[in-house]
Simulated assay, not measured.
Amino acid sequence: EERAVSLVGTILSDRVGLLPQRMAKSRRNPMSVPVREVCVRIETGKILRILSNDLDAPAEEIAALYKRRWAIELFFRWVKQTLKIRHFLGNSENAVRIQIAVALIAYLLLQMAKADQTTVASPLAFARLVRANLMHRRRIDRLLQPTGSPPHSPHQMSLQW
C-alpha cells in the first residue's frame, strides 16, 4: 500500500507491505505482520530506507525518531572511541551519568594540558606520557626531561652498590 506524502518535506515515499516468507536459503522470516517502509533523504543527499512496525504514526514522526536515535548512537560511539569507556560500571542512570561526566572531565583536562605544551605533538603520545607520570609532581613542560636524583641529605645513609 502506497501512502500519500508531502511534496515539500524530506519524506520520499511511505509504503506498507509484507516481507518475503524466506529471507535466505533456510531462514524463515520472523516478521509475519505488515511492516512500513519510509524512504527519507538526509542532509548529505543519501536516501535511507527505514523499516518500522508502527503503522499508525506519521512518516515525519518516524523519520524524526530515527534521526534522534541515530544521534544517540553517534554519541555513544564517540564515548567509546574518545573517552575509552568500554562498559559501564553501574546499571542505573545516575551511575552512567557520573561515569560519562568523570570521563569528560578527564578528557577535557587532558586536552587543555596538551594545548599548553608544544613538545609532544601526538595526543596519544601525550596521554601515555601523562599516564606514566601521573603520580609524579612535575610540570607538564618538563615531562620529557629525565628525573634528577633526589637531593642528598647528609643525615641519611647512602649505600654504594
Rank of each mutant, 00 (worst) to 15 (best):
I98Q: 04
Y66H: 08
K46L: 09
A103H: 06
L12M: 12
A115F: 01
L108E: 00
G90D: 06
I85E: 03
A101D: 03
P154I: 04
M31N: 09
N91A: 08
S149I: 13
D54K: 07
H87D: 10
L144M: 13
P58W: 02
S153N: 12
V5I: 10
V33E: 14
K80D: 01
R15H: 11
E73D: 07
A64R: 14
L7R: 15
M112K: 13
D14Y: 01
Q160R: 15
T119L: 12
P151F: 05
A95M: 05
R77A: 10
H152E: 14
I85M: 02
L129N: 05
R28N: 12
R128Q: 14
Y107G: 00
D116G: 10
A101N: 09
R137V: 11
V79W: 00
R36P: 07
V130L: 15
P34K: 11
R22V: 09
F126D: 01
L89R: 12
I47W: 01
E37D: 06
Y107H: 14
R139C: 11
Q81Y: 00
H155S: 13
G17M: 11
N91M: 04
S122A: 08
R139K: 13
Q81F: 01
S32P: 04
S158T: 14
E43K: 08
I47S: 02
M135L: 15
L51P: 03
Q111G: 01
L83E: 01
